[in-house]
């Protein structure tokens, strides 16, 4: 669950370097083999940023097209995955900005909580947490969304997130600070039952 789930942190092996070389020479199969391993993770990040699976696939496709076209500009000192995530994240930020004026997604349906002795937050299934995340993340700015999802949810470290987003580590921390603040507030307002101890603490005051 919270384990290092991102392929993006894997080191770039000889196999990957060879694929990059072949892809640069125009070998489509090599390019496919290269990107296939990161598509699932990239789609997950983009879907969390946009809150829409289908739109996320479209962004992933655009990212792959751009990666193929700009492969000669890829700096092999970087992990290929970092570069690909950078392209995908930037595209997702653009899409999120473009639709910023649209109405935010309506909250739909209740949350499915399994009866047990556990607290509501413990009982909440990971997939439901995912749904809440996607819903509340839409209230963040695109940059805050990207930084929070990459570091807190996907588990990248701050330096890696900075490389993906093309900004400084301090900027990433700043985005995450504001994202946390906004999410905390929205979570307590809309899902107070999911904040263990906090209600009791609030009541005690």
């Amino acid at each position: 669950m919270v384990t290092a789930r991102l392929e993006v942190v894997s080191t770039m092996g000889d196999d990957e370097q060879a694929l990059v070389r072949s892809a640069r020479a125009g070998d489509e199969d090599a390019f496919a083999a290269l990107v296939r391993r990161y598509m699932g993770g990239l789609h997950r990040v983009v879907a969390r940023m946009l809150g829409d699976d289908e739109e996320a696939w479209d962004v992933v496709q655009m990212a792959l097209v751009r990666a193929w076209q700009k492969l000669d500009r890829y700096d092999s000192r970087w992990r290929f995955s970092t570069w690909l995530y950078r392209i995908g994240t930037n595209l997702a930020i653009d899409v999120a900005r473009a639709r910023a004026s649209r109405e935010r997604a309506h909250e739909a349906g209740g949350l499915r909580v399994v009866a047990s002795q556990e607290t509501p937050a413990q009982r909440l299934e990971a997939s439901e947490v995912e749904r809440v995340l996607r819903r509340l993340a839409l209230g963040l700015s695109p940059q805050q969304r990207a930084a929070f999802i990459l570091r807190e949810v996907e588990g990248l470290d701050t330096a890696e997130v900075a490389r993906v987003m093309g900004c400084s580590a301090a900027t990433v921390r700043n985005h995450i600070f504001h994202a946390r603040k906004a999410l905390r507030s929205e979570l307590l307002r809309r899902y107070p039952e999911l904040a263990p101890g906090r209600q009791e603490a609030d009541h005690a005051v």
């Binding site: 669950m1 919270v2 997950r44 879907a47 969390r48 607290t119 937050a121 413990q122 909440l124 990971a126 997939s127 947490v129 995912e130 809440v132 995340l133 929070f148 807190e152 949810v153 994202a179 946390r180 999410l183 905390r184 979570l187 307590l188 999911l194 904040a195 263990p196 101890g197 906090r198 603490a201």
Partner: peptide
């Protein structure tokens, strides 16, 4: 996890799983 989330409820999202 509960204790950590009492510090900051946004830690809930570390559990998100797609």
């Amino acid at each position: 996890r509960d204790t950590a989330m009492a510090h900051d409820p946004s830690l809930l999202f570390l559990r998100a799983e797609a």
